[in-house]
């Protein structure tokens, strides 16, 4: 048996101090991902600092109309929250598209963003994996690839980020509030997760010991008219093959004044489709226009036999999602 010390943190600062001081310590949120990894041997911390009971479990409205979500707001509560559903439907829908009712009841906001990849080799300690054990090699290259990335992958790692919530947060330009040993800092979602490069062991830009305390959602017309669509291998309880988080604002002529497109299941991080957004701004929304815009974004895609489907799938789904938003349908 591995000895494991369990601390229940009294306040955020002492939790940060405990973890920052010990490279073998980890924060424990709802545990739905980390505890699996302890069992599989994917990670073997010597200390767990349970932050799930810290009083960071409020959703509060900000003076500028935005929303602040404490890290310990459970995924199910966040999805059901009225203000979220009204102002950021993409967030509620993304949450409900993920995992199962039981897991959502348990999972925390911060834990969701920091969940690790579902790559089958990452989870199997008998196979090499650069993310789990840097320098050992990437088994997914030349192996099972159905869920692999088509954008932004590297020779070191070709996996995707599994979180649905993160994709929605990327689309609405959320900010992650982080507490570190030197105090608080604010990280835009676009800078929170990273591409694998030559350091795939690093999923995010957080330093060891930095604690997510909250996520802030700015209000916008595009966030109010937003939605999430996910294609998957079964009707529920499956990670995305691809997903689309999108928000749209039209001007009085019906032209696009603001559009947000983020893709899940295609990259090591939620993929904000900025090329496609730029193509669409100032134009009328039509299936053709969105397809063309998505294709411009996907020009950089690198696929193989197992991932080739993702390009047409995400293109089609983006077209469907945006035309739906343009027609005023919210689903």
């Amino acid at each position: 048996m591995k000895e494991l010390t369990y601390h229940r943190a009294d306040d955020a600062a002492s939790a940060v101090a405990l973890v920052a001081a010990d490279p073998d310590a980890r924060f424990l949120g709802g545990g739905t991902n980390l505890v699996d990894h302890l069992k599989l041997g994917v990670t073997s911390p010597t200390t767990l600092v349970d932050v799930s009971r810290l009083p960071l479990d409020e959703v509060s409205e900000l003076p500028d109309g935005g929303l602040r979500i404490g890290t310990n707001v459970r995924n199910s509560d966040l999805a059901a929250h009225r203000a979220v559903r009204r102002g950021w439907p993409v967030v509620a829908r993304a949450l409900l598209a993920g995992a199962s009712g039981q897991i959502r009841n348990q999972a925390t906001t911060g834990g969701n963003l920091l969940q690790r990849t579902r790559c089958v080799y990452f989870q199997d300690v008998t196979t090499p994996c650069n993310k789990r054990e840097p320098g050992t090699g990437c088994s997914a290259i030349g192996g099972y690839g159905r869920y692999n990335a088509v954008l932004g992958a590297s020779e070191a790692c070709v996996t995707t980020h599994p979180s649905d919530l993160a994709v929605a947060l990327a689309a609405v330009d959320a900010t992650v509030v982080v507490l570190g040993p030197d105090g608080e800092r604010r990280v835009p979602m676009s800078d929170f997760h990273r591409l694998p490069g030559d350091r795939p062991e690093q999923d995010t830009t957080l330093a060891h010991g930095e604690l997510v305390t909250a996520v802030e959602l700015p209000a916008s017309a595009a966030a109010r008219r937003s939605t999430y669509r996910k294609a998957r291998d079964r009707a529920s309880y499956a990670f995305a093959l691809v997903s689309v988080a999108a928000g749209l604002e039209l001007d009085d002529d019906g032209r696009v004044s603001d559009v947000r497109i983020a893709w899940g299941g295609v990259a090591h991080k939620p993929w904000r489709a900025e090329v496609a957004e730029a193509e669409l701004r100032g134009r009328f929304v039509s299936e053709e226009a969105v397809r063309a815009a998505a294709e411009a974004e996907l020009a950089a895609a690198v696929t193989d036999e197992q991932t080739a489907y993702k390009v047409p799938m995400v293109r089609n789904l983006t077209a469907l999602t945006l035309t739906g938003l343009a027609e005023g349908a919210t689903r």
Partner: peptide
């Protein structure tokens, strides 16, 4: 390699 019930899919209730 699809050796658990998260990666070896069987029909879920919604299916």
């Amino acid at each position: 390699v699809t050796q658990d019930l998260a990666t070896y899919h069987v029909a879920a209730h919604a299916d």
